[in-house]
Amino acid sequence: MIIRGKVIKYGDDINTDVIFPGRYLAITEAEEMAKHAMEDLDPDFLKKVKERNILVAGKNFGCGSSREQAAICLKYAGVKAIVARSFARIFFRNAINQGIPIVESPKAIEFINDGDEIEIDLERGEIKNLSTGKTFSFKPLPAFIRDIINAGGLVESMKKRLSKS
């Protein structure tokens, strides 16, 4: 899978409560969740994400709650991929299960600026910064995880698995 887009960049420790505040947890429709994405972090996020749909962040992205709404709201707001120095473990799993391409790369944060256009090759483990011409590599996710992402998330991959058995 190859993803190309412009970048919105954030810092370290972006937590689930600012990605999706607890006051909206009773919402069950994904489109409705998307309206509150990043509400407590960046009031302009929904405007920005129309033009730029790859997030780049520092360490421990998605720390805090197990709320899958944090991944769901980003997906339905239009985020196509997330690149971070590191992810908190439950968010990491939730993002994969929602089919969001996710890249752990300690170098990316240094070489990508807010607004840059980048291209990510998930299979090869390579990010090209089209704005600066720099290219750098990352360790690709294991094949079975890439399969979940390629299927569009765990629901789709599980559907296939259950219908076969």
């Binding site: 929602q98 998330g153 765990l154």
Partner: peptide
């Protein structure tokens, strides 16, 4: 458990951890 603080039950010598809702649906299945 579908709650991050499922780690609490480690206090009883269990391997106890939080997961998301989609994964839990698959565990239920």
């Amino acid at each position: 458990g579908t709650d991050s603080h499922t780690t609490t039950h480690g206090a009883f010598g269990a391997f106890s951890t939080g997961i998301g809702a989609t994964e839990m649906a698959c565990v239920w299945a």
